[in-house]
Simulated scan of single mutants.
Amino acid sequence: MPVIEGTDVNLSYNDCIVEDSSNLVDGDRDQVQVIIAELRQQLEIVTEEKNQLLVENHKLMEQTDQLAASLSCLNVELHNMKTEKAEQPKCSLLAEITTDDKMTLFYTGLNSFKLFTGIFKSLKPALRSDTRFAATLEEQFLITLMKLRLNLSRRDIAYRFKITIPTVTSYIEKFINAMFIRLPVALLRKPDREAALKTLPLSFRAQYPNVNYIIDCTELKCETPSNKIDAVSCYSTYKSHHTSKFAIVSTPHGSVAFLSKAFTGRATDVDTIRKSGLLEFIEPGDEFLADRGFINEGDFTSLGAKVHIPSFKGRRDQLTGKETERSRIIANERIHVERVIGNLKKKFMVLRGIVKIKDFCTDYYNNAFISKIFVTCCCLMNAQPTIVPQY
Results as ranks from 00 to 15, higher is better:
200 L>V: 01
159 Y>C: 04
78 L>W: 05
274 R>H: 14
52 Q>M: 10
29 R>C: 05
12 S>R: 02
262 A>P: 02
387 I>W: 07
193 R>S: 15
12 S>F: 02
368 A>Q: 11
181 I>W: 07
130 D>A: 09
344 L>N: 12
325 E>D: 09
179 M>C: 08
12 S>K: 06
196 A>N: 08
159 Y>A: 11
91 C>I: 02
214 I>N: 10
53 L>N: 07
227 N>M: 03
210 N>M: 06
47 T>N: 11
185 V>R: 13
363 D>P: 05
292 R>W: 01
74 L>N: 04
254 G>T: 07
223 E>L: 12
389 P>W: 02
231 A>K: 13
280 E>G: 15
298 G>Y: 00
260 S>A: 09
41 Q>M: 10
278 L>W: 01
335 I>Y: 01
105 L>W: 00
358 K>F: 07
301 T>F: 01
154 R>A: 14
256 V>K: 05
271 D>C: 06
147 K>T: 03
309 I>R: 04
292 R>V: 02
47 T>F: 05
147 K>M: 11
194 E>G: 07
389 P>E: 14
328 R>T: 10
45 I>Q: 14
148 L>Q: 01
126 A>K: 10
24 L>F: 06
272 T>V: 15
220 L>S: 02
289 L>T: 02
169 T>H: 05
359 D>S: 13
150 L>V: 08
100 D>C: 14
241 H>K: 09
75 N>I: 09
264 T>R: 06
39 L>C: 09
324 T>E: 10
254 G>K: 02
202 L>F: 06
231 A>E: 15
367 N>F: 01
35 I>K: 08
271 D>Q: 13
138 E>V: 03
105 L>F: 06
109 G>C: 04
283 E>S: 11
213 Y>H: 09
269 D>A: 00
90 K>F: 01
170 S>L: 11
79 H>C: 14
125 P>L: 01
381 M>H: 09
319 L>R: 11
327 S>Y: 01
186 A>C: 10
255 S>F: 15
22 S>T: 12
338 E>W: 00
17 I>E: 13
352 R>P: 06
371 S>L: 05
53 L>F: 07
25 V>H: 13
231 A>W: 01
15 D>F: 03
248 I>C: 10
129 S>F: 06
102 K>Y: 11
44 E>H: 11
182 R>L: 15
243 T>A: 09
165 I>P: 04
24 L>M: 15
315 R>A: 08
259 L>Y: 04
323 E>A: 03
354 I>P: 03
89 P>W: 03
375 V>L: 11
343 N>H: 15
364 Y>S: 10
272 T>S: 08
290 A>R: 00
